[in-house]
Design a protein around this nucleic acid. Structure first.
Length: 891
DNA sequence: ATCTGACCCCTTTTT
DNA sequence: GGGGTCAGAT
């Protein structure tokens, strides 16, 4: 075995000596197909990097023979880093990248044989939507009935399943010729035919623009490998070891891509013996896939969980090794995760375990509304930081949907806590950035009609719809790209002089920019600067009076910095290369890498959180309809995916897990009453320490019977203002559907059970002292959110009792149908006046404050509505608070 | 051609 | 709360 000077050879013992037996076996396994079933926190990245090092040092493979696929650029960068540390600079010569960047690399090099020029554009979702809109307009499609999004999602499905447009067209609309002009499909009853036609036309125009979309990156690479045997041979000989991370999230096209690259089917006639010591130079490449079917959360994007489930049938002589020891979390957290995921049907049973010990209980909190939930979390973060010296960067707040981040952000800002938000509207999706990128794209690829037409009148230069239509007409007639028509504008008939002048100016602008970009002395950041100034983009924003435009100017200057940074890190940096990095960024790529401390609390969606870990994790919005998301609650398989998402969330936590919910959440203007998430119910109740079990609304409601709950916890609610009649009975009872709720013990008892439908197992209650058995069989109907405004489903409050309780802390009332716009302020959102009475407070009383936590009253000052109390919060200091405004509760 | 205001629908999750 | 679209005014 010849030794590579860049390779730090590692002995077998160095690579596996400190691993557990399963990990060691996975690192050393010799065979054509290996599936590593890696539970959350089981050290899979470690195993993967060690295995690569092992293949190099012990199998004698060359670095160039290795292809390692990860899901995000960040994961790839991290793996490269770890490999460099382990085996030296040789790591730089391996392909460690995402599916998408690997495919870009292949297509740039070899795409010619399927008609792709190396300078092709990569369209993001917004570009694709533009293209579909253009097509819909030309074909006279009603975009209300067939939204571009829906059409694109269908096209994406086709592509993920490798169904070509040719086949679709043949089946559904055989008379359509892509590119033909004047075809009016209108709005046929046959949606399939419409999809087929748009799909074909979409592909036709992508090809004409020398562009691909995200799905094409995979699909067209498969096409290339299948159509060009020389190219296929090249890569099959090149890559002898292929490793795929997050295999449970691969879609069919990616699955086929792996098979094609590995030459699994090409090698069929001559099966590889199972006992070969290494892959050798011919035949099937050796495949290692790593994944966890319980963490498959991308089915909505085409991921097919069967890829991992059927691995053993799909690949000859496949071997499976399971990693079940968790090195990340406490046993309490794992017990919760195991309990939740065990409600999914048809999964291979698997139990994570840890040697780390039981740890702290999970902390639960039920807030009245989203603002209060956020404020409580902010307070808890401040407390953990102050009292327990936990770094902000060790804490993360997670939620189901990006829209939930707003109230959390506001609370953190109010509390003066540093945070970073990951995801949401991405930098590269901002309008001004998209505009600038569109210029760059149009410079690199003048055939790119979508981007060229986008910038035609940005900034405004008097070239509106009319001018565009004239050029498009000429381009269509001559079957040339849009910009080619602009270049020939002198031969276009009937162009008004004014328009002609403007078009000429645009052409001169673009020609000038292209010349500038073509000069090798000008680097990407120079080109960005030139585009920003010459195009007038910057000037327009600078002149604007819209305050938002100031930050847009900032963003543009940041784009230039990004380009400069790219040059620093990339030898031979080209503009096309820069555009590629901007096209393929993921949300998680913004996160600081290992060992970097941002010093900030991290906010992100559960999807973005996959693969990450934090000592402290807050899972927020644990409500039916929020999480699981309302759109996913009816369908069993979608609900399973939500549950896997919950599993992912829980297992992100290393030491402490918080689960919080809001009893009322406003979603697009409407205040909705939210039931607790069924996933909360699936966590064994003795694992959760509820700091506040019921929201105010719920206490009031439960209070009518006052049976079985602890007066200390719900102090102040004992006197029964409401009588039993208002809240009793039918609507409430039917939603919880149990005879127990009539007896009053269910709601107040330590364990609450909402019915014993398929997924929800019944456990004996213990925390509250009273037993709650199976609560009947109303199945899922009891779950879900309830809109105040909607008739029929609201709770049985009489209009008279809709005012407030004596203390007035929570005002639950019907919200009038949205009229004057003040509906949401009338909703039980954070009230300005909390209605607390100074007479109820005395020196020595214990209270809690949403931000500062527990405190003792040290002084009271009666000034009527402006009463002030002074509270000692211990480590958080002594504060003077406006009694009726402060977010406090008397204990 | 462009600006304004009144609607409309809507929102999972993302490489 | 928000952005995108459309009609009507300038």
């Amino acid at each position: 075995m010849q030794q590579d000077p860049d390779l730090i050879a590692r002995s077998a013992n160095e690579l596996v000596g400190d691993l557990n037996p399963q990990q060691a076996e996975a690192v050393q396994y010799r065979g054509p197909a290996l599936l590593i079933g890696a539970g959350a926190g089981s050290g899979k990245t470690r195993v993967l990097t060690r295995r690569i090092a092992y293949i190099l040092s012990q199998f004698g493979a060359w670095p160039s023979q290795i292809l390692a696929i990860t899901f995000t650029n960040k994961a790839a960068a991290e793996m490269r880093e770890r490999l460099a540390a382990l085996i030296g600079p040789v790591a730089e010569r391996m392909w460690v990248s995402t599916f998408h960047s690997a495919c870009v690399r292949i297509l740039r090099r070899d795409g010619k044989s399927i008609g792709l020029d190396p300078g092709f554009s990569i369209y993001d979702t917004a570009d694709c939507e533009r293209l579909v809109k253009l097509i819909a307009a030309d074909l006279n499609i009603d975009v209300k009935r067939y939204t571009p999004r829906a059409i694109l999602s269908r096209i994406s499905d086709y592509k993920n399943n490798l169904e070509g447009w040719q086949d679709k067209l043949r089946e559904q609309a055989p008379d359509y010729r892509p590119g033909q002009r004047g075809y009016q499909i209108g709005n046929p009853g046959n949606a399939e035919a419409l999809y087929a036609v748009v799909y074909a036309e979409y592909q036709h125009r992508l090809a004409a623009a020398n562009a691909v979309d995200f799905d094409d990156l995979i699909g067209r690479t498969v096409e290339l490998l299948r159509r060009d045997p020389a190219v296929a041979d090249y890569y099959r000989h090149k890559f002898r070891y292929i490793l795929v991370d997050e295999y449970q999230d691969t879609n069919h096209a990616q699955y086929v891509l792996v098979r094609e690259l590995a030459g699994v089917d090409a090698a069929k006639g001559a099966p590889v013996p199972a006992d070969m010591p290494y892959a050798g130079r011919e035949g099937q490449a050796w495949i290692t896939v790593v994944g966890d079917s319980d963490q498959s959360i991308y089915a909505f994007r085409g991921a097919d969980i069967r890829n991992i489930q059927d691995f053993e049938q799909d690949f000859p002589n496949a071997k499976t090794i399971m990693l079940e020891q968790n090195y990340r979390s406490t046993q309490t957290i794992l017990d919760a995760a195991n309990a939740v995921i065990s409600n999914n049907e048809g999964r291979k049973p698997k139990k994570l375990w840890t040697a780390l010990g039981k740890g702290e209980p999970i902390v639960g909190y039920a807030a009245d509304n989203a603002q209060q939930e956020a404020a409580w979390i902010a307070g808890e973060i401040a407390r953990l930081h102050g009292e327990e010296a936990i770094a902000y960067s060790d804490m993360a707040v997670m939620y189901r949907a990006n829209a939930q981040s707003r109230s959390l952000e506001e609370a953190l800002i109010n509390a003066g806590l540093p945070y970073q938000l990951v995801g949401g509207t991405r930098f590269y999706e901002r309008r001004e950035i998209k505009d600038a990128i569109a210029y760059l794209q149009a410079i690199v690829n003048p055939a790119d009609d979508v981007n060229m037409r986008r910038i035609l009148n940005v900034p405004k230069r008097g070239l509106g719809a009319r001018a565009e239509a004239i050029v498009v007409g000429y381009a269509d007639m001559n079957a040339i790209p849009f910009y080619a028509a602009v270049e020939r504008l002198d031969s276009i008939e009937g162009v008004p002089t004014r328009t002609a002048n403007q078009l000429r100016a645009f052409r001169d602008l673009m020609d000038g920019l292209r010349k500038f970009a073509a000069d090798p002395a000008n680097r990407p950041s120079d080109i960005v600067a030139e585009v920003l100034s010459k195009s007038g983009l910057l000037d327009e924003l600078r002149k604007s009076e819209d305050p938002q435009d100031a930050s847009r100017v900032e963003n543009l200057s940041q784009l230039q910095s990004v380009a400069a940074e790219f040059e620093q890190n990339t030898p031979d940096a080209t503009l096309a290369g820069f555009l590629e990095t901007t096209a393929l960024v993921a949300d998680s790529d913004q996160l600081p890498g290992e060992g970097e401390d941002s010093g900030k609390v991290t906010l992100m969606t559960l999807h973005t959180a996959k693969g990450l870990e934090y000592p402290v994790v807050f899972l927020t919005g644990m409500e039916q309809g929020t999480f699981p998301h309302s759109r996913a609650m009816e369908d069993a398989s979608e609900l399973s995916e939500e549950r896997r998402l919950a599993y992912v969330g829980i297992t992100r936590a290393k030491r402490r897990l918080y689960v919080t919910r809001a009893a009322v959440r406003a979603q697009w203007g409407q205040a909705n009453e939210m039931m607790p998430s069924q996933f909360l119910d699936e966590i064994p109740s003795d694992l959760i320490d509820w700091k506040r079990r019921e929201a105010g609304v719920e206490r009031m409601r439960a209070n009518w019977s006052n049976g079985g709950f602890d007066d200390d916890e719900f102090g102040g609610w004992g006197d029964d203002d409401f009588g039993g009649t208002t809240y009793g009975g039918s609507t409430y009872g039917s939603s919880y559907g149990s005879s127990e709720s009539a007896s009053g013990s269910s709601y107040g008892s330590g364990t609450r059970r909402f019915g014993a439908g398929a997924g929800s197992r019944s456990r004996g209650g213990s925390a509250g002292g009273s037993r709650s058995g199976s609560a009947g069989s109303n199945g899922r109907s009891g779950y879900g959110s309830r809109s105040y405004g909607s008739s029929g489903s609201s709770y049985g409050y009489g209009s008279g009792s809709g005012s407030s309780s004596r203390s007035g802390r929570v005002t639950t009332r019907r919200v009038a149908p949205k009229t004057g716009g003040s509906a949401s302020s009338a909703a039980p959102g954070a009230p300005r006046d909390n209605g607390l009475n100074i007479a109820d407070f005395h020196v020595g009383d214990r209270i809690t404050h949403d931000m500062y936590g527990l405190g003792t009253v040290v002084d009271t000052l009666d000034k009527g509505a402006k009463s002030v109390i002074t509270v000692d919060f211990g480590s958080a200091g002594t504060k003077r608070l406006m009694l009726n405004r402060a977010p406090i509760e008397k204990l």
